[in-house]
Amino acid sequence: MSGIALSRLAQERKAWRKDHPFGFVAVPTKNPDGTMNLMNWECAIPGKKGTPWEGGLFKLRMLFKDDYPSSPPKCKFEPPLFHPNVYPSGTVCLSILEEDKDWRPAITIKQILLGIQELLNEPNIQDPAQAEAYTIYCQNRVEYEKRVRAQAKKFAPS
């Protein structure tokens, strides 16, 4: 494992614990031996107030490669969400998460999670990743928002 990646992720964890947006979660997972795995984080993004996503808490896994922060983490909703920019596998399609697009090593975990929260309610229809959600979003916004509200209710924190 890269010392650069681990040191950056340790800084990220410290900064997150000191200050993070209300309702968001970002925690490194534990290895079988109980030690912390900084390369694999369990996160959760709350649906934004005043949107059909409100009330939901959407679980996301963030996986970092050894060359982080040169390369972005892979962000994957578990379980996958109904959304035009979420692949059926759950992987998020967002330009700041793509090395050859808008990724920059200075982007923080907090910025990534806030960017994904923004994307939930403002899909990028130029870059669809899920045919069904994309089609319904474009053709029947009322039905799309109904499905999103049902999903938010399903993923409401207990």
Rank of each mutant, 00 (worst) to 15 (best):
V92W: 04
C43A: 12
H20W: 01
S7M: 14
D19E: 14
R104C: 11
L6E: 10
F82I: 04
I45W: 06
F58G: 04
F82W: 10
A131T: 14
R17W: 03
A106K: 00
L38Q: 00
A152I: 04
D67A: 12
T35K: 01
A26P: 00
P88R: 15
K18P: 00
S7F: 03
R104P: 00
P128R: 11
V92I: 07
R147Y: 08
Y134V: 08
H83Y: 00
P128E: 03
K59Q: 11
W53V: 05
W16N: 01
L114R: 09
S70T: 12
E99C: 13
C138H: 08
I136K: 07
Y87G: 03
Q117N: 10
P52T: 13
L97M: 12
P84C: 09
L94I: 05
P32W: 12
V25H: 09
L9G: 07
G23E: 09
G55V: 07
V142P: 14
I109K: 00
E99N: 09
T35L: 02
L63K: 13
E145D: 13
Q126T: 14
P123H: 01
E145P: 05
E122P: 02
D67S: 13
I112N: 13
P52C: 10
Q111N: 14
G47L: 01
N31H: 11
V142R: 14
L94Q: 02
N37C: 15
K153T: 08
L60E: 03
V92R: 02
P79I: 15
Y87A: 03
F64Q: 06
K154D: 12
F64A: 03
N31D: 05
E54C: 03
N40I: 07
W53P: 04
I125H: 03
F58L: 05
M1T: 00
R8C: 09
R17H: 01
A152S: 08
K48C: 06
A133W: 03
I125D: 05
P79F: 12
F64V: 12
P73F: 03
A150K: 13
C138P: 00
F24P: 00
N31V: 06
R147W: 08
E98R: 07
A15N: 08
K48S: 03
F64D: 05
K49D: 09
L81I: 13
G55K: 09
T91S: 15
V142H: 13
N85H: 01
H20V: 00
S70Y: 12
A156S: 10
A150Y: 13
Q126M: 11
Y137R: 03
Q126A: 11
C43N: 11
E12A: 00
G55L: 10
K76P: 01
S2H: 12
Q151W: 02
Q139F: 07
E54G: 11
L6D: 07
P88G: 12
L81Y: 02
L38F: 10
P80A: 14
N121R: 11
D33H: 00
A5Q: 13
S89W: 09
E99A: 12
K146R: 12
K65C: 11
R17L: 01
T108G: 10
L81R: 03
A44V: 08
K59P: 09
P105C: 12
S158N: 12
C93T: 00
I109F: 07
D19L: 03
Q117P: 08
N140K: 07
D66F: 09
K146P: 00
I45S: 06
C138E: 15
N124A: 05
P105E: 10
W16T: 04
P84V: 15
D127W: 01
Q139N: 11
L57Y: 07
I116N: 00
T135Q: 12
G56Y: 04
S95I: 00
P73W: 02
I4L: 08
L94N: 04
R149S: 10
S2I: 08
W16V: 02
V92L: 14
P157W: 13
A129H: 04
V92A: 09
M39A: 07
Y144I: 03
I136Q: 12
A150G: 13
K153Q: 09
K101I: 08
S95V: 03
A44W: 08
E99P: 11
A5W: 10
Q11L: 13
K49H: 14
L94F: 10
G50M: 02
N40F: 07
E143C: 11
S2N: 08
D102V: 08
Q139M: 12
T35I: 02
I125Y: 02
K59L: 11
P28F: 05
S70W: 09
Y144E: 01
D102W: 10
S2V: 14
P52N: 15
F64Y: 10
P21A: 01
D33S: 02
C138W: 08
W41M: 07
P52S: 13
P79Q: 14
L60W: 04
L120S: 03
A26Q: 04
D66W: 07
S70A: 13
G3S: 05
T91G: 15
W103M: 05
T108Q: 15
Y68T: 06
M62L: 08
K59V: 12
P79D: 14
E122C: 13
N121E: 12
C43R: 00
K110W: 04
N140V: 01
D100N: 14
A15D: 15
T91D: 06
M62Q: 04
G3E: 12
P46H: 07
T51Q: 14
A10R: 04
Y68D: 00
K74R: 14
Q117A: 14
E12R: 02
M1F: 07
F82G: 04
G55Y: 15
F24D: 12
Y144D: 08
F77I: 03
A10M: 14
W41Y: 03
M1I: 06
Q111R: 15
E145M: 11
K30Q: 07
D100V: 15
D67M: 11
R149W: 10
P73D: 00
K49C: 08
D102F: 08
S89M: 15
E145W: 07
G23Q: 00
K110I: 07
I107Y: 06
E143H: 10
K65A: 05
C93W: 00
G3Y: 12
F82A: 03
S2Q: 15
R104G: 03
I107V: 14
H20G: 01
D33C: 04
Q139K: 10
P84N: 13
C43W: 06
C93L: 04
A150Q: 15
Q139W: 09
S89T: 12
K110S: 07
A5K: 06
Q139H: 11
K65T: 15
K14P: 01
Y68E: 02
P21L: 05
L63T: 08
M62R: 00
V92T: 07
L94Y: 04
A44H: 07
F58E: 05
Y144T: 00
I107K: 05
N37I: 09
A5H: 15
H20K: 04
P123R: 02
P80D: 12
A156N: 05
G55N: 09
D127T: 14
A26R: 03
A5N: 12
V92G: 01
Q11N: 09
F22E: 01
Q130A: 12
Y87V: 07
T108Y: 15
N85Q: 02
P69A: 04
I125Q: 06
R141Q: 14
P69S: 02
N124T: 02
L6H: 08
C43Q: 03
I4A: 12
K76Q: 14
T35Y: 02
V27C: 14
M36W: 00
S7L: 10
F155C: 11
S95Y: 06
P21Y: 04
P123V: 07
G55P: 09
P79A: 15
S89Y: 15
P88H: 14
I112T: 15
N85T: 00
A26V: 02
C75Y: 03
F24M: 10
L63G: 13
F24I: 06
W53C: 02
E78D: 12
G47R: 01
C75E: 03
K65F: 08
G23L: 06
S71F: 06
C93V: 09
A44E: 13
I96Q: 06
W41P: 03
C43I: 02
L113Q: 05
P105S: 11
L119R: 01
I4P: 08
D66C: 13
F22S: 04
S95A: 04
K101H: 14
Q117L: 09
K65R: 15
M39D: 08
D67T: 10
D102P: 02
R104N: 01
V27E: 04
L94G: 00
D66L: 12
P88T: 15
L114I: 12
L57V: 08
I96L: 11
K74G: 15
I109D: 03
P72R: 06
A156M: 09
T51A: 02
S95G: 02
Y144M: 00
